[in-house]
């Protein structure tokens, strides 16, 4: 089979890309161990151990942590606060956690794998600022490593459109306003016209 030079170039480029990607995966070691004689534990950077995301769901914000295998978050170290102006965020409601008993710190509620919390919010800025919340959380690796409290400011996403079959409330409201304006225009016309005969075109 004869291949054009262009096809060959694409194949070569794809092979190169695949090689580079594989080399990256194979050579991936925790950054703090690279080039250093140290223990072979593959601890994750905190952002990989605890992946956080937030979504707006009506009048509440849902915050979700995806926790890597072998890691956990302390329930009493999770907090949410308003960051953008004129935003009020209520305390986060969290489900009960698993009980972890530490020899020195006693029983502690922790989360493994995944946890979702909900907090009601009120915006007083009428959408003038992008909404930002500040999250604080702290966790450890079961192998014996703890990360200092992590503080992150994030922008919650809107709920995906597929999740809500009806139109977004903002869009619905705009339609009602347009309808109101049209009806108002009609009403004003009727009021002005009342009792008067329409002038003839005068042809």
């Amino acid at each position: 089979m004869v291949r054009s030079p262009r096809t060959r170039a694409w194949r070569t480029a794809s092979l190169l890309l695949a090689t580079v990607a594989l080399a990256g995966i194979v050579g991936a070691r925790p950054w703090w161990l690279r080039g250093v004689p140290a223990n072979g534990q593959d601890f994750l950077p905190p952002d990989a151990a605890f992946r956080v995301s937030a979504q707006l769901d009506g009048k509440r914000v849902t915050v979700r942590w995806d926790i890597a295998h072998g890691y956990y978050l302390y329930r009493n170290k999770i907090h949410v606060a308003a960051e953008s102006p004129d935003l009020i965020v209520e305390p986060l409601t969290l489900p009960p956690g698993a009980l972890l008993t530490d020899r020195y710190f006693g029983p502690q509620e922790v989360y493994y794998r995944r946890v979702e919390g909900h907090a009601a919010y009120t915006r007083l800025d009428f959408g003038a600022h992008p909404m930002q919340i500040k999250l604080t959380y702290q966790g450890c690796a079961e192998a014996g490593l703890c990360y200092p409290p992590i503080v992150k400011v994030i922008y919650p996403t809107e709920m995906p459109a597929a999740a809500s079959p009806v139109a977004a409330p903002g869009t619905q409201a705009e339609w009602f306003l347009i309808l109101a304006a049209l009806a108002g225009f009609l009403a004003a016309g009727l009021a002005l016209r009342r009792g008067r005969a329409l002038p003839s075109p005068g042809l």
Binding site: D125, F126, G127, A168, A173, E174, L177
Partner: peptide, 12 residues
């Protein structure tokens, strides 16, 4: 209704 929705959502 329209105004109420816009204000309560704060959703430009």
């Amino acid at each position: 209704y329209g105004a109420h929705q816009l204000v309560s959502q704060g959703n430009p």
